[in-house]
Design a protein around this nucleic acid. Structure first.
Length: 475
DNA sequence: TCTTCTAGCACGTTTGAAATGG
DNA sequence: ACCATTTCAAACGTGCTAGAAG
């Protein structure tokens, strides 16, 4: 399966004119593919739902990728984050998802760092890279570092490959971002689409207990014995439910078959990236099969195109933050912009600027991120009318606070600006998801604890794990 | 009234330490 | 003493459900 966008399309937004062909060439060498693509497609065609809970829930299917084209001896860091697909909140109405209103302000953006990071390219390429332990939560005050999402909102995982020797170097490095259309999902606190439930039960070994018939019936019987009054009350409902289960059991056996038939009758999309939307699709009525996945969004195609192209990692604001951090930890260069950072003598930055994951610092006149309230979401947008999905700032990193040279970790939220243009960041939201939600004083102990309790170690962990640059790393 | 969220539950899987055997 | 294999209990992950909350 091809990523939704290759590097160039991925970062087709205005980039510095310094974009060097050689750098682009290097970038294009790196390839990423999604494992279990068929499984993802199966879910996607039904409208993937990901359960999010307060304590955190794993993804299923979980993200698993294969990488190629890396330099075998160069070190890379692999990151994952989630970006909103659009600016809407959804609701499940009968048998399909419908827009329920504008999206809520984005929660703190967190980035999942693969525990093997940093590792040489040969390590990443020798076997698929799994993000099994990535967890999603709807708890905006989560202190476990899980990725925070809003329920009933749609998201898409993004995979970032960063050539960097350590986490400190990330800010100097080239981000290469990959996305896969079939990984778009709706975050839910409880399954809405029964087909998704069944698909998960059928494929997830942890759900085996629910796969075998009788388990739930047994539980019902136990409950009935304990609460006979309720049993009488629900007898009819249960009976109907059991009958429905039988029907569903039959349906399950023939589901994929009939589903394939359904889809066989549909015109094939021209673009491989496009996702078939058949009759089973829960996304709206009469979906146009020629539309790509993102046409599920009520946004117009133009807007979606903007979404597609604006995958910027990190944002100008991020650069400012990084630069500030640099002031503290690395070098005395100014904290104004990416350009200023590029003057700090790190050649790798040049290639980053040429690439992808950056946008020119077009907003140096605006207050820097650090001059704004810590909780603000200040990304500087590219010129032109603002759009919904200016996911400018992505990396939500914990950095050593410039104010405290003792290395107290500050948490810099740099949420997507998806709804800034819509005014969703007006007022309170800044404070709502501010860094205070993730107290800086809490981080060091948390992460040191995590690193201590995890048995896994690789070459660099003992060193860089002391520097919890990222909000989440699964050690 | 409806939709969404949460806590508790029971079950299977995974994990890692302890026990065992070569 | 060392290593590999097996055993087993605890931890973990899962979807289901009733009830609460908005």
């Amino acid at each position: 399966m091809q990523p939704a966008r290759d590097l160039k399309p991925n970062f087709s937004i205005p980039v510095p004119s310094t974009a060097a062909g050689s750098d682009s060439y290097l970038q294009s060498n790196v390839r990423m593919s999604l494992e279990d693509s068929d499984l993802w497609k199966s879910f996607h065609e039904l409208g993937t739902e990901m359960i999010i809970t307060k304590p955190g829930r794993r993804m299923f299917p979980h993200c698993k990728i294969t990488l190629s084209g890396l330099l075998p001896y160069a070190k890379y860091i692999i990151l994952v984050d989630m970006v909103p697909v659009d600016g809407f909140r959804y609701k499940w109405n009968k048998d399909r998802w419908e827009v329920a209103g504008k999206a809520e302000p984005q929660p703190p953006c967190r980035t999942y760092l693969h525990p093997d990071s940093p590792a040489p390219g040969s390590h990443w390429m020798k076997q698929p890279v799994s993000f099994l332990k990535l967890k999603l939560t709807n708890n905006t005050l989560d202190q476990h570092g899980h990725i925070i999402l809003h329920s009933m909102h749609r998201y898409q995982p993004r995979f970032h490959v960063v050539q960097a020797d350590d986490l400190f170097s990330v800010r100097w490095s080239v981000f290469q971002t990959f996305t896969f259309p079939e990984t778009i999902f709706t975050a839910v606190t409880a399954y809405q689409n029964g087909k998704i439930t069944k698909l998960k039960i059928d494929h997830n070994p942890f759900a085996k207990g629910f796969r075998e018939q009788g388990t739930n019936t047994k539980r019902r019987m136990l409950k009935s014995q304990m609460c006979p009054e309720k049993d009488a009350k629900k007898a009819n409902a249960i009976k109907q439910e059991d009958e429905q289960e039988n029907l569903q059991a039959e349906f399950r056996g023939s589901f994929y078959e009939s589903y394939e038939e359904d889809h066989a009758s549909l015109p094939k999309p021209k673009d491989e990236k496009s996702v078939k939307e058949g009759r089973c699709s829960p996304w709206g009525a009469d979906p146009d099969p020629s539309q790509s996945l993102r046409t599920d969004s009520p946004l117009g195609s133009d807007t979606r195109e903007i979404y597609n192209t604006e995958q910027l990692v990190p944002a100008p604001a991020s650069y400012q933050l990084y630069s500030k951090f640099q002031d503290f930890g690395k070098s005395p260069s100014s904290s104004t912009s990416a350009a200023s950072s590029s003057r700090s003598g790190r050649p790798s930055f040049e290639s980053r600027a040429s690439d992808v994951a950056t946008v020119p610092d077009q907003d140096t006149n605006k207050p820097s991120a650090l001059e704004m309230p810590s909780s603000s979401c200040p990304p500087s947008l590219p010129p032109g009318p603002p759009t919904h999905q200016d996911y400018a700032g992505v990396l939500n990193v914990a950095v050593a606070s410039p104010q405290t040279k003792t290395g107290v970790i500050g948490h810099i939220y740099n949420p997507y600006t998806t709804e800034q243009a819509l005014g969703q960041w007006n007022g309170p939201p800044h404070g709502q998801y501010g860094s205070s939600a993730y107290p800086s004083h809490h981080l060091p102990s948390d992460y040191s604890a995590q690193s201590m309790h995890h048995g896994y170690h690789h070459g660099n962990v003992p060193d860089w794990s002391q520097y919890p640059l990222f909000s989440y790393s699964c050690w």
